[in-house]
Amino acid sequence: MVGMTLIVKTVARWVKSFIFLYGIYITLYGHLTPGGGFAGGVIVACSFILLILAFGKEKALKRISKALASELDSIGALMFLIIALLGIFAGGTFFINFIQKNAPGQDFHLLSAGTIILSNIAIAVKVGSSLFMVFVILAVLRVVKKGDKLEMIQTNMRGEE
């Protein structure tokens, strides 16, 4: 059997979506409550890492492939950069909060901080996908000792060579 025992699997099946949602909440409310893009991204990645731990990596990789995670990684970083660059065109300065400058939001509302929420989303995408990638790479690659040399091998979905 791939993965952990039935108890762990059942709990993980229940908990994973709550963890995922909590990560999104932390991201979206980053400008109002403690948290933000980085913490939210880590929590989102944790829900996928839980999947890997409980069910084995094939189940997690079926939802987000390595290629997709790598794309998301670049997209998150680019989004952040585009928001910063838009500041030059819309507000005259790199990284300026151009939404807040042109159309200030109401205090204590979800969209009260202009570009901050957009930046948080970008960071969450970037951090979440790169952390997931790091974990997948650690799970997929093994270093074995062959003779007196170390060799890196890629294991297949079941963790065999």
Binding site: S74, I75, A77, L78, L81
Partner: peptide, 13 residues
């Protein structure tokens, strides 16, 4: 800073 960063992230995409 922005130009090389943009290049670095567009390339893998």
């Amino acid at each position: 800073v922005a130009v090389p960063l943009a290049g670095a992230f567009i390339i893998p995409m």
